[in-house]
C-alpha cells in the first residue's frame, strides 16, 4: 500500500513537471500571479520599503509586466535573490523572470541558456572610495583592498582592469551589497566596486553620502536587463515588448497622468498618431492578441507606474537621493541609447 502511494506520488510529480514546461505565460495565468526574481536590497532598483513592499526601478518593470498580463500590477510575488542564487532560481523555474540588474553577457546568454530580452539600464562598473583617502582615479588604487560582490561580472572585470594596468589589489569577496557596504564602511576595504548605478544607490543609503566619491573611471560595459529562460520565445517577447511599450510611451509623450486623455483623444480623432492607436489598442487594433495578451496590455503597463522616463525619475532620477542622470539611458532622440522598435 505504502509503495503504491509512493509510486503514485512519483508519477504525479513527473506529470506536474511535464505540465510545467507547457508555457510560462499559461503557468502564470493559471497561478494567478507573476513570480519576479528581485534584488534583496539595492535601494532605488529593488528593495522592500518600510512597509515591506518591494519598490524600485527594476520592481516597476515587474509591476508593468504583471499589469500587462493580468491588468493588475499587484499580482506579483517577489523572490529576493543574491548574486549567487539568481541564475539558479531562474533556471530551476523558481521565478518567471529575473529583473535584478543582471549584466547581459555572451556566456550567460549561451552557456547558461538564458535570454536577455531587453536592456532597461545601460551601466558600467565603477569604484567608490572614501573622500579622505585622497584618491582621484582608479589607477591610483595600487595595493588597495577592494570589496566585490561574488558571482558577478564585476569580479572578472576587476581582475582584468588591475591586470591591464599592471597594479595589484587584494580582493574581499562578499555575498551581497549589504555585507559589502558594512565591510566598506568599517574600513575593511579601501574601495567598493560594482555597477555605477549600484554605487550611487549604496552611497545614497549611507549615513553621510558626501564623505564618499565615485571615481571617474568606468571600466566595463554593463547592459542590465530582464532575463528569461531560453526556449519560451513567447514569454520572452512579452517581457521585451512591455519594456518597449514603456519606452515608446515616453517617446510619444504618454504618461500615467495623461493616459486617459490620450486614449480619449485618439478614439475621437481619426487623424491621431496611428502608432499610439496600435500601442494602446484603440479601434480595431489588437496587437496584444499576437502574443497571447488582451488589447489593453500596453495601457495597463503604462497605467501601472507611468512610462520609462517616469519610472526612472521616480526611483533613481536626479530628484531622488540616488541622483542618477539619464546619460546613456536617455531616449535615442535625446542622445541616449533607449530605442524601441516600432509597434506595427
Amino acid at each position: 500500500m505504502k509503495k503504491s502511494v509512493l509510486l503514485g506520488a512519483l508519477a504525479a510529480t513527473t506529470m506536474i513537471a511535464g505540465f510545467a514546461s507547457a508555457g510560462t505565460l499559461d503557468d502564470i495565468k493559471a497561478r494567478g500571479e507573476l513570480i519576479c526574481g528581485s534584488n534583496n536590497g539595492l535601494t532605488g532598483f529593488g528593495a522592500p520599503d518600510a512597509d515591506g513592499n518591494y519598490q524600485g526601478f527594476d520592481v516597476s518593470l515587474c509591476k508593468a509586466i504583471a499589469a500587462a498580463v493580468f491588468g493588475d500590477q499587484s499580482k506579483v510575488k517577489y523572490v529576493p535573490t543574491t548574486g549567487e542564487t539568481r541564475f539558479t532560481a531562474l533556471a530551476s523555474g523558481e521565478v518567471d523572470v529575473l529583473v535584478r540588474n543582471s549584466t547581459w553577457t555572451f556566456s550567460r546568454d549561451n552557456d547558461l541558456k538564458f535570454d536577455f530580452v531587453a536592456v532597461n539600464y545601460y551601466d558600467g562598473q565603477g569604484f567608490m572610495v572614501k573622500k579622505d583617502l585622497g584618491v582621484s582615479s582608479a589607477k591610483e588604487l595600487d595595493g588597495a583592498t577592494v570589496c566585490i560582490q561574488t558571482g558577478t561580472t564585476t569580479e572578472l572585470n576587476l581582475a582584468d582592469f588591475f591586470k591591464t594596468n599592471g597594479i595589484a589589489y587584494t580582493p574581499v569577496t562578499v555575498a551581497d551589497d549589504a555585507e559589502a557596504q558594512r565591510q566598506y564602511e568599517a574600513g575593511a576595504c579601501d574601495a567598493f566596486t560594482t555597477d555605477a548605478s549600484g554605487l550611487a544607490s549604496t552611497r545614497a543609503a549611507m549615513a553621510d553620502p558626501t564623505a564618499h566619491i565615485i571615481l571617474p573611471e568606468i571600466i566595463s560595459k554593463e547592459p542590465l536587463g530582464p532575463v528569461v529562460r531560453h526556449g519560451d520565445n513567447n514569454w520572452g517577447d512579452i517581457v521585451r515588448w512591455v519594456h518597449f511599450a514603456l519606452v515608446i510611451a515616453e517617446e510619444k509623450g504618454i504618461t500615467q497622468a495623461n493616459l486617459a486623455e490620450v486614449i480619449a483623444k485618439s478614439e475621437a480623432d481619426e487623424a491621431a498618431d496611428p502608432e499610439v492607436k496600435r500601442l494602446l489598442g484603440i479601434g480595431d487594433n489588437d496587437m496584444g492578441v499576437m502574443m497571447g495578451l488582451d488589447k489593453m496590455w500596453a495601457r495597463n503597463a503604462i497605467a501601472a507606474n507611468g512610462n520609462y522616463g517616469e519610472i526612472f525619475e521616480a526611483n533613481i532620477g536626479t530628484s531622488t537621493p540616488i541622483g542618477l542622470a539619464r546619460g546613456l539611458n536617455a531616449l535615442w532622440t535625446q542622445g541616449g541609447l533607449q530605442y524601441a522598435p516600432p509597434v506595427r
Partner: peptide, 13 residues
Amino acid sequence: KGTLGGITLNQTG
C-alpha cells in the same frame, strides 16, 4: 565552498 562551490559555480553556471 568559496571557490568551487561559490565563484566557479556562479561564473560557469
